[in-house]
Design a protein around this nucleic acid. Structure first.
Lengths: 211, 211
DNA sequence: CGCAAAGTTGCACATTCTGCAATTTTGCCT
DNA sequence: AGGCAAAATTGCAGAATGTGCAACTTTGCG
């Protein structure tokens, strides 16, 4: 009966992280080269040097591996939201969180560019991303409900504001992708939140054009 | 038999519709009785009196059959949007469309109650619904872009307003479900659109409480 | 060392989903 | 009515997903 509480896993945790990384990288690379539908779990596992069975210990599906989502992975979006001050208005907090996510994404290197290109092109990956968004949305709704003192089951506000803001993030990313990533993603996010804050009225003035 | 009435649509079309209906009904009933994960395509096909292979001629997955979604099915949401006057502000048109959908849903009988209970409870069905929403969202975005004369690839507004409004519909349905369908779904929709129109600011006064 | 926990692997198995070719059913025309 | 062509159904084969389980191996630590 060893003291599990103070256990510091060194090599064990590191190897797990390496395997996770190797699988995600292999999945992304193969999907980019061959197209997601022509990639098998077996091929990903081979490329990462593990057995197919082990693949499913890390990812619950091929799609999740490609877009880099581990089950029960704590999302940075939620973490950022938890870090905002409690008395901040929900929409402001969410705007800051989404903006931070966008900056992180833009700074994140080529992997995210490739991922989003694939998501944009292949329906099955968009579905996987939707599922992930839904899970994040659920948890962020809980947090907004806590902040506002509302019951997330009875009151519509928490779920609504989270749905709208995550929708804004998704739409901004997709539009940015469609524009072939010309211009700053942050600008799109800002525009989107301005439109949301103004009651979704059709903007009179045409917003930033990148084309 | 008198051919005038029955032959107008044709026996072929009628039998197809019957098979479609039988499969959807069997899928829903079995999923309700056993839980979605314990239902197989084979069981659904058996209950509907067709072969498993034929099932896939009608639905692309077990989940789609349970929530009643046929591939390339034209959604009533899109049809309603197309029927709105062209010069109506997008948010107003979408509000009307979503309200109509809610009314239809409430009047629709027990099947939708069961469906939403299952969707609410089982993650895989929520994912399938998300995928369907995404497809509808894409097509409605096209239409809003046409109305506003904006480029759906370059401008964020069409996708944003559609995303927010369909999100509102989804959130309202889920909340209604959580409240065990006490009260009118239309009221929730109205509240949601009011919040959207007021820039997603936290309402000072608590809205309709059903509990 | 040696034990316990954690991670990996192979295997069996149910299931999903697709393509193809054969067969049956339906619509329609003479 | 009879028969042809299109449409729908079906069986079958096969690739692939995903899971449970029982070894087996590796790691952490006393």
């Amino acid at each position: 009966m060893s003291p599990t509480e103070t256990m510091r896993e060194g090599l064990r945790e590191r190897k797990k992280a390496e395997t996770h990384q190797a699988l995600a990288a292999a999945a992304l690379r193969l999907a980019d080269e061959l197209g997601p539908e022509r990639v098998t779990v077996e091929a990903i596992a081979d490329a990462a040097g593990v057995s197919p069975r082990t693949f499913f210990n890390y990812f619950s599906s091929k799609e999740d591996a490609i877009i880099g989502i581990a089950p029960a992975q704590s999302s940075a979006l939620l973490a950022d939201l938890l870090a905002r001050p409690d008395d901040e208005p929900p929409l402001d907090a969410l705007r800051a969180v989404v903006l931070a996510a966008a900056e992180r994404l833009q700074a994140g290197g080529d992997d995210w560019v490739v991922r989003h290109r694939l998501i944009h092109k292949h329906h099955t990956l968009a579905v996987a991303r939707s599922a992930w968004f839904a899970e994040v949305e659920r948890r962020m709704t809980e947090e907004v409900a806590r902040r506002t003192g509302l019951d997330p089951g009875a009151d519509i506000y928490p779920a609504l504001v989270v749905s709208a803001t995550l929708g804004a993030l998704r739409v901004a990313i997709d539009t940015w992708q469609e524009r072939e990533r010309v211009g700053a993603l942050e600008t799109l996010i800002d525009d989107a939140f301005d439109v949301l804050a103004h009651g979704l009225r059709l903007p009179q003035r045409v917003t930033t054009q990148a084309v």
